[in-house]
Structures are given as C-alpha cells and as structure tokens.
C-alpha cells in the first residue's frame, strides 16, 4: 500500500518510464496491434497475394458457415479436443502436485521427471516419437501384443486418432503442476489441523480446504490452457497431417492450409478473426463464471 506514493515521490523522473517502455510500445503497435487490425481488414477481402486485395464484404464469413465442410469439421474436432484435453491435463496436474506436496525425501527428483516432457512443448521430435509409439506396428501395439492384446489402430482409426494426438498435451502437464505445487505450499497447515480436529476425512479435507484455496490457480490454468489448446498445431500436423478422414484437422491447420497452401489470405484472416472472437467469448465466460467458483482470500476484489 505504501509503495505507490513513494514511487511517485522519488520519481520526478517519471517520464523516463516512457523511454524504457518505448521498445514495447513500438513492438505492440507494429507487431501486434497493426497485424490484428490488418487481418480484420483482409478478412473482408479476396486476397491471394498476387493481386491486390478485393473487397467482398462478409462473403468470407458467409462461406465458412455455408460452403466450407472443412470448417465445421475442424470446429468440431477442436472443441472436442479442448473439452477433453484441458480438463484432463488440469486434473492430472493437480493429482500429481498433491502427491508431490507430501513432505518426503526425493520429491525434487520426481518433480524434475514429471516436468521434463513439458519443456519440449509442441516440438517436432516429440511428435515424431509419438507417431512411432502409436503406429500400427509401433511400440505400444507391440507391448500390448506381449500381453496378447490385439493391436489398436491408434492413428488410423478416425474415432481414436484425436484422442491419441491429444495425449501428447496431457503428457505435458508439467507447468500446470508446478503452479499447483506453488499454490499447495501456500495453504496454511493450521487449516488442515483444524479440519482434522473437526474429524474431517482426507477426502473432505481435499474438498473443503484444498480445492477452494486452489480455485484461483485452477482458474488461471483453465484460461491459459484453453487459449493454448485452441491453437494446437505441430503435433497433429506432424503426426497425422489432420487425418484420417480429417479427424484431427484442428482449427490452426485449417487456417494454415487456407493461408499458406491455398494462398487464400482473405479467407484465412476471416478464420483467424473468428477464432479470436471465439477465444474472447470463452475467456469472458470463464471470467464471468469465476465469482461462483473461484475463492479469493481477500474477498474477491482483484
């Protein structure tokens, strides 16, 4: 509380601040704001980069909803993926973080191991590995055959390919886990002791103490992971190229193919803007819902 006036006081130099943030201001205007507005503009044009953009009104937007079968397909699989992978990842991260929060020797070692896959993010090497693991004659199927289980067509069956590809993301739950761990460490032990005295079982302690106090972190993870999940590109692109039968044809691939394969820059811009609006709406909904389930220790004034 004290800090603010003090900063003002010592800084008769306050305008120096502009000097320091100048790089970002330029970067923001040229590399973020301008492209964002430019793509809104392009979204109302027919533009293949060879000729000048030609304005066609809302036709790009009308086309996606009426003529483009790939659009509805990619919206469908993207939503399924988001709804499946994001909660799974968060639940997994929370469970492992709870285990790692128990004071025990060697926990840092386990934390390193669980975090390791996450540093590779959507790298090609990991996608290559995934493809090899889940190919028809890949490692997983051969391990299954050791237990005389019939091979599963993990990547060739349109009903499960999306699941297989999404597993990579769930496998990389490390950063959510680290956030949960940091949150768990901040829960005062007295709360658990009080709960124990009241005779609360472990399950009840989790439900009435741990979970409410972690809801801000769940909230944060939910927002960031959802935004990321909408943009997933590398893994499906490298592993399945969107197939089989477009069952892993995620929205980012739709934008990529229209923009950079078919050079329909206007249409790709319209697709991008639709995604942007969708993300804003979903994020806003999550934010709006937060008073009902996110617990803030200071009474909710952020």
């Amino acid at each position: 509380m004290k800090i603010k006036p003090r900063i003002r006081e010592i800084n008769k130099y306050q305008y120096w601040g502009y000097l320091f943030i100048t790089p970002w201001i330029i970067g923001f205007i040229v590399l973020q704001l301008y492209p964002l507005l430019a793509s809104l503009n392009y979204s109302f044009t027919d533009f293949n980069m060879l000729n000048d953009p030609r304005y066609i009104g809302f036709q790009n937007y009308i086309r996606m909803f009426t003529k483009d079968v790939n659009f509805s397909q990619s919206v469908k699989v993207t939503l399924i993926r988001v709804l499946f992978a994001v909660p799974m990842k968060i639940i997994f991260a929370l469970m492992v973080a709870m285990l790692l929060n128990i004071r025990l020797k060697g926990m840092n070692f386990y934390r390193t191991i669980f975090y390791l896959p996450s540093i590779f993010g959507g790298s090609v090497a990991i996608s290559v590995l995934w493809k090899f693991l889940f190919m028809r004659e890949g490692l997983i199927n051969r391990l299954l055959s050791v237990f005389s289980i019939k091979p599963v067509d993990w990547l060739g069956n349109p009903d499960i390919a999306l699941f297989t590809v999404s597993l990579v993301t769930i496998w990389e739950f490390g950063s959510s886990m680290v956030l949960f761990l940091a949150g768990l460490k901040q829960i005062p032990r007295e709360l658990y002791e009080a709960a124990k005295i009241d005779g609360a079982s472990l399950l009840k302690q989790f439900y009435y103490v741990t979970l409410p106090l972690l809801t801000p972190i769940v909230f944060f993870n939910l927002v960031m992971q959802t935004i990321n999940a909408f943009q997933e590109f590398t893994t499906p692109f490298v592993i399945t190229s969107g197939g089989p039968a477009k069952s892993t044809y995620l929205y980012a691939m739709l934008i990529y193919e229209n923009g950079f394969k078919f050079l329909k820059m206007g249409y790709a811009s319209a697709l991008s803007w639709l995604m942007f609006i969708a993300i804003i709406i979903i994020t806003a909904l999550v934010f709006k819902s937060s008073p009902y389930w996110v617990y803030y220790g200071d009474g909710g004034s952020t």
């Binding site: 603010k4 900063i7 003002r8 800084n11 130099y13 306050q14 305008y15 120096w16 601040g17 502009y18 320091f20 943030i21 970002w24 201001i25 923001f28 590399l31 973020q32 301008y34 492209p35 964002l36 430019a38 793509s39 392009y42 980069m49 927002v223 960031m224 935004i227 909408f230 943009q231 590109f233 929205y251 980012a252 934008i255 923009g259 950079f260 820059m265 790709a268 811009s269 991008s272 803007w273 995604m275 942007f276 993300i279 994020t283």
Partner: peptide, 30 residues
C-alpha cells in the same frame, strides 16, 4: 515509474498474453 497512462499501457501489455499467435500469423506473414 508512474507516468501518465501507466495503468492502461500495463493492462494492454498483460492482455497481449492472451493474444493468440495463430490470429496474427497471416497478417504478419504479409
């Protein structure tokens, strides 16, 4: 530093955390 428009600029910077790269890639390419 607490310069004029500090709050707005800072909020803008933070909000770009949620700006999807995929949305910008087409105009950036051009």
């Amino acid at each position: 530093f607490r310069f004029p428009f500090h709050r707005i600029l800072f909020a803008l910077m933070l909000s770009t955390l949620m700006l999807p790269n995929t949305v910008l890639v087409v105009p950036r390419y051009i």
